[in-house]
Design a protein around this nucleic acid. Structure first.
Lengths: 141, 141
DNA sequence: GCCTAAACGATAATGATTCTCAATATAGAT
DNA sequence: ATCTATATTGAGAATCATTATCGTTTAGGC
C-alpha cells in the first residue's frame, strides 16, 4: 500500500502525498511534469496546491521513490522508480518515451569514469530519434 | 575568421554576434550559461542586452555552431562546436566538466535504437561523479 | 482527545527565458 | 560612397517554471 511506501521513506502519510503517489502509480504515462501531475489531480476533482506537488516531488526524489529527468525539451519530468535502473529513448516527433537497459554501456561508463579519475555516482543517457509507432505523426512525413 | 563562420551559417555579421562568438572561442571554460556569457561581456565593458545573448545563442544552435546541454543541475549551458562529437562527465562537487568519446558506447546506442524501432538522430550522455582534481573541494571530505 | 511540529493551500517572490517595440545597423542595389 | 528595405538590437515588460512565505490545518506520539 502507498502508506507503507511513505512511512518507509520517512515521510508523514498525508492526503496530498497519497494522491500524488497513487496518480504516479496508476498513470499510463510514466514521465510527467509537475504541472501535468497538478493538472490531472485538479481535473480529477482533487483540491491540492501546485506548491504541494512540487514539495512532494522533491521529497519523493530525495527518498528515492521517484527520479527526475531533464530531456532536451528542457522540461523537468518525474518518473516513479520501479524495477531496476534504465535509460531512455525519446521520439523527437511524438514525444513517446521508451526505456532500455544495456549492460555493455553501463560497464563502459564505469571504465571511462575511472580512466578520467572520477568515481562514478550516476549518469544520464537519453537517445533521441524517430519512432515507428503507428500513432507517430512523423511516420509518413 | 568569425565573420566567415556567421556568413556560412546564413547569419548577418553583427557586432553582438561577433562578440559572443569570440568570447566562446577564447574562454577557458567551454560550458557556459547565457547569463554567464552576458555577465562576462558586460564586465568586459561591452554594451549588450541579455535578450540579444539568448537570441544569438538560439541562432547559433540552429546553425550548428554551438550545442546546448541540460546537465542535472537544471541549468542550460552552451558549448562551441569544435572537433568531433563527445559526451561529458561532470564532477558533482566542483562542477568541473571533462569530455570523452567512446566508440563502443556510440555503436551500442545505434544498435539499441534500431532494436526498439527508432531511427537515432541524437543522444545526450552525461556521467556524474567525484573527480580527483587538486582543486576539488570534496577531495578530502 | 490533546499537543507540537510538520505539512498544507494560496499567493507572492524569484530566476530563467521570451516577447514587444522603437531605434539602429547591415547588405545589397544604386 | 549613399540609399533603402529589412533584420537586428537593447531595454524592459511579460511569461513560465519553481521556490519561499505565511496563516491555517493535520498527522501521529502521548
Amino acid at each position: 500500500m502507498d502508506s507503507e511506501e511513505l512511512r518507509n521513506a520517512g515521510l508523514k502519510v498525508t492526503t496530498p502525498r497519497l494522491k500524488i503517489l497513487t496518480l504516479l502509480e496508476n498513470s499510463a504515462e510514466r514521465h510527467m511534469t509537475a504541472e501535468t501531475i497538478y493538472r490531472l489531480l485538479v481535473e480529477g476533482g482533487e483540491v491540492i496546491g501546485l506548491a504541494t506537488v512540487y514539495r512532494a516531488l522533491a521529497q519523493f526524489e530525495a527518498a528515492g521513490l521517484i527520479t527526475r529527468h531533464h530531456f532536451d525539451s528542457g522540461q523537468t519530468v518525474y518518473e516513479l522508480e520501479r524495477g531496476p535502473h534504465h535509460d531512455h529513448i525519446v521520439c523527437i516527433r511524438c514525444g513517446r518515451v521508451e526505456e532500455f537497459y544495456d549492460k555493455v554501456i553501463e560497464e563502459r561508463q564505469r571504465e571511462i569514469a575511472a580512466s578520467l579519475g572520477f568515481t562514478l555516482s550516476d549518469h544520464a543517457l537519453t537517445l533521441y530519434g524517430q519512432c515507428n509507432s503507428a500513432d507517430c505523426p512523423g511516420r509518413n512525413g
